[in-house]
Design a protein around this nucleic acid. Sequence first.
DNA 1: GCTGAGCGT
Length: 85
Amino acid sequence: MNIFVAKLNFKTRKEDLQAAFEQFGEVSSAKIVLDRDTKRSKGFGFVEMPNDNEALQAIAALNEKELDGRVIVVKPANPKPANNY
DNA sequence: GCTGAGCGT
């Protein structure tokens, strides 16, 4: 299950995201979307969880919750956009 | 060094 995480603190890193979600289940990968030029966080990211029910629990538990001092938004992600680099 | 909606280099 792909999970979309928004309104992250700009200093939050991908490992911080993964650590937060691992409390509720297995996390295969976590990612913070960085700006292509400045490499700074765009303030949102994605988390991949193999187990769907654990993913839903993690979403329910972390949505509207606080991470690194910021209230984040967690919801199922949309399909990946087409590769147009 | 900075900002604050929203879906990925």
